[in-house]
Computed example of a mutant assay.
Amino acid sequence: MASSPRLRTGLRARREARTAPRWPVRLAAAVLAVLGLAVLLVPPLAQLDQQLVDLRSAGLPPSVEHPLGTDQVGRDVLLRSVYGLRVSFLVGLVAALVSMVIGGLVGLLSGSLGGMPDRLIMRSVDGLASVPHLLMGIFIVAMFSPSPVAVVVSVGVTHWVTAARIVRSEVLSLRSRPFVEAAISGGAGRLRVVRRHLLPHLAPHLLLATVLMIPHAIWHETALSFLGLGLPPHLASLGNMINDGQHSLLAGDWWSSLAPGVFILVPTLAVSVLAQHWRDRLTPRLRSELTL
């Protein structure tokens, strides 16, 4: 008996998932593990103030004592990069969670209601999505003094539209499933259907979308801090460090800007690789269709 095209697609996707090279995923996991240990252990073990100014050590190139050199006022670049990565990651994580909560609620409400309310909500979402995120973020943080709260509000308010679209599409797909139709036919109320049938299936997709949002939130925070609108200047942030380091480039101190740039690029790429692998495992059939 011949198998259906859908079954063959699913089997091919699972076979490709098993035979795909694993070294990028393992490398990404190892990089995140090393950076995580550095963020947790380096500040307590160093016993140094990342704001400590030592003009006698200003502008030193990378060496054994200072592996990534010092900045223009003698602060250790490696230590400040580790502090900055911790601050940027925490701000990005909280901002991604706020964005996902707002977008998840809007998408769930839109997909559950359907009809005219769904169209009105999604047209409003499309209108907000047409405004550049960075421009809207600058407008929001300009109303506050530079602080982590202002950055979290800025990213959360400007990035929830993507989450709303993802959740709405999943809700519309789930509403046509037999088990949801059976629950509705059996007299289950709307809240019960959402709580017992929709949310358990949406949870993995929401968690994956949150992980994918973290690198974007970190880039957004870095851009705002680089422009002087994000975190306060005295707080070690990767964006603040790049902003400070650009004044040293003319003097040849390239390490002051390169080190925080690497600390931004490497972990965000590692998170993206792991999230992509997770998405392939979560939706193998989608992966197979995209590679046709």
Rank of each mutant, 00 (worst) to 15 (best):
L265C: 04
V53F: 06
D71E: 05
V151N: 06
A29I: 00
A182S: 08
V211R: 02
Q50F: 13
D76N: 05
A150Q: 08
G186I: 07
T9K: 12
L90G: 13
V34K: 04
L60W: 03
E16C: 02
H234N: 12
S272L: 13
F179R: 02
V157W: 10
I138H: 06
A142T: 14
E221Y: 10
P148K: 06
A95V: 06
P5A: 13
P178K: 05
A28N: 00
G74A: 03
L68E: 01
V171G: 06
G239A: 05
V141W: 05
S88Q: 03
A17C: 02
E16H: 14
A270P: 12
W160Y: 10
A13N: 02
P21D: 14
L78V: 04
D244M: 10
M241K: 09
E289S: 11
M122I: 06
H197C: 09
R18K: 13
A183M: 03
Y83L: 03
P62I: 12
S130T: 12
A38Y: 03
S112Y: 07
L105A: 14
S110I: 01
L231F: 04
S185G: 13
L105D: 00
G92D: 03
V34Q: 07
L37F: 10
S225P: 09
L128Q: 11
E16A: 15
I214P: 12
S63T: 09
L41F: 09
G245V: 10
S145G: 15
V155Y: 11
G115C: 12
H66V: 01
V155M: 09
L128R: 05
S225M: 09
W255Y: 08
R80D: 07
